[in-house]
Simulated assay, not measured.
Amino acid sequence: MTMGDWLMHIFVMLLGLSGGLAVGSGLVAFLIILDLIPRLAQIAYAYRVSVWFETAVICGSMYWTFADFLDWRLMLPKAIILTVSGLMTGMFVGMLAGALTEVMNVLPILAKRMNLSDYLVGLVMAMVLGKTLGSLFDWLYFQW
């Protein structure tokens, strides 16, 4: 291997590490800002076992990371896999939608306190366009 190859490999490793740290930090910040786990414990009347909710999030993240990296497959009938994954996905999307509904009420208050009220529409549009363009870029470029 030449020096250029080594530098390229080091650059790719640093890029992957920094991307992983950014996504992981974003997920943690997202969970903290939304108060998802304490809110879930409050709704379930399970304050004393909220550690189980936190542990489930961590274990789920670790499991699915390894499942993705190691290309694990479940050898179950497709009907069972689709039913269980559909149920879990629906629960996740429902909880996330509820949490996002509460957070969207925070944006106007935050904008007012930071004197950004005049730019609120622009901030929301930037978030929407960023998500849309990022998704389109992923679907149209990386998936093909």
Rank of each mutant, 00 (worst) to 15 (best):
A29D: 02
S18R: 04
L140S: 11
R113C: 02
L82M: 12
F69Y: 10
D118C: 01
F30L: 14
L96A: 12
V84K: 03
E102R: 11
A79C: 03
M114C: 07
D5P: 00
A44T: 10
I37C: 03
L82A: 13
R73G: 00
I81S: 06
M3S: 13
W6M: 09
Q42C: 01
G94H: 12
G20P: 01
G122L: 06
M127S: 13
Q42T: 13
I43M: 05
T55F: 15
I33N: 12
H9D: 09
R113Q: 13
S117T: 15
L123I: 15
M13V: 07
K112M: 08
G16K: 05
L14V: 06
F92C: 08
F137E: 00
I32V: 13
L123R: 04
G86V: 03
I10T: 15
A44R: 14
T132W: 15
M75W: 09
D68A: 12
I80F: 15
G60M: 08
M8H: 07
A41R: 02
R73Q: 14
G19I: 07
L70S: 00
L133R: 00
A56W: 09
L133A: 13
S61T: 14
D118V: 01
I81R: 03
L21G: 01
M8T: 08
L74D: 07
V12Q: 11
A29F: 10
I80D: 06
L123F: 13
V121M: 09
D68R: 05
C59W: 14
F30M: 13
V23N: 03
A79W: 12
W6H: 09
S85H: 00
G20Y: 13
R113Y: 02
P38K: 01
L129E: 03
W52V: 14
G90S: 08
L40G: 00
V106Y: 02
D118T: 04
